[in-house]
Design a protein around this nucleic acid. Sequence first.
DNA 1: AGTGCCGGGAA
DNA 2: TTCCCGGCACT
Length: 406
Amino acid sequence: MIPKARLGKRSPLGALVTSTSPGINLETGETVVTMAVAGQQATSRADGHLGLKVYFQCGRAGESSVDHLDSSPSPCGRSVSSSIDVPKRSDQRSPHEVDMNELMAAMVLSSLSCSPLLHSPAQPDLTASMECGGGELSDSGYWSVGHAHRSPAPSPPIKESDASPATPPDEGVDMELDQVLFDEPAPRKRRNSVKVAYRCLWPSCGKVLTSVVGIKRHIRTTHLCRGGEHERCSRSEEDFYYTEINQWEHPQQWSPPHSGHSSSSPASPASSPSSPPSPPPPSPPSPSSPSCATLSCSAPSSSGSFWQVQSEHSYQAPPPSQHVVSAAAATPSCRWTAPPTACHKQGLSFRVRSVSVGEQWLQHQSAPSRRIRGEAKKCRKVYGIEHRDQWCTACRWKKACQRFLD
DNA sequence: AGTGCCGGGAA
DNA sequence: TTCCCGGCACT
């Protein structure tokens, strides 16, 4: 869900950035996955159990319309559309084969839509696509390699109820935006230099595993569904309870889970997102519950990308003469709180919150361009509008107050 | 609605 | 450069 209020009038990419979530055509039963990134749009349509088609289209988002395979080529000269038609096998395909087709489609989609530098076969889109397609393969085992070595955080769980277009957790898009907006080649870099592990966030657990499958299974079996009575929670809730941790090649940059700095680690019960001693098992996120959706979508993944992104609010940059509050040195109690938490430090008011990459993008949209509203009294408040002549010059000119600095 | 202040225009 | 203000962001 993109809050329209703070998205800004225009995208820094110069184009309307949209991201539609996978939807299911009720008439045809198709699963349609559409991505639109900065003028590129890709649509993946998985024909349920009949076949799989991937549509990819480059062109302006505004003028593009998805070309179906059997339609004539796009009349738009700037649009290049291509499609990959996976041979149909309508006769009793196992779910495994369906998933493999979706996997292939997602791989093709990823290779087409991502920048040439992103050539890893295990793209975050895979996860999104797979899960959007209705089949999460993580339990089958062969996904674990891709998950274990991909750099982005595990994709938020996309439930069947997430077919609503309101919440597109398209991490592929977000990653692209992330790179574009932050001018940061980090994800690409991390791909080569980071090992990924997954840590259980269950209070007083902190188990670290190297694969999503493993950590999910651990959570599901150990914490959530002891005995596996609920099939449902095994599909949805374990994502809440693990986080991705990046182990950099430089060993000193990654502290073990139970090191002395564990107070800042998500495994600490006191600082974990589900810090209450007995965290109520979060109900499966539903589109009708924004807070739940935000939490569920952001908590698992943002924890993983947390280390890279959480201090990038440029408006938090201290004045030249002041100290630097680094992300790593932030108050631990503020770092791992899922709900928005305000930290006040030496007059600086800033928020540290676990957010998804998309949310971070939104924050970066608004944050750098406008300084945070100061809490100090301003000339207007002190002197009142009737004594405007006593205001500082900046206040008189409706500029940032120079007299009562924050 | 009130406030802070960015961006931009006029002098 | 100085001064002013429209309008957005935020509370």
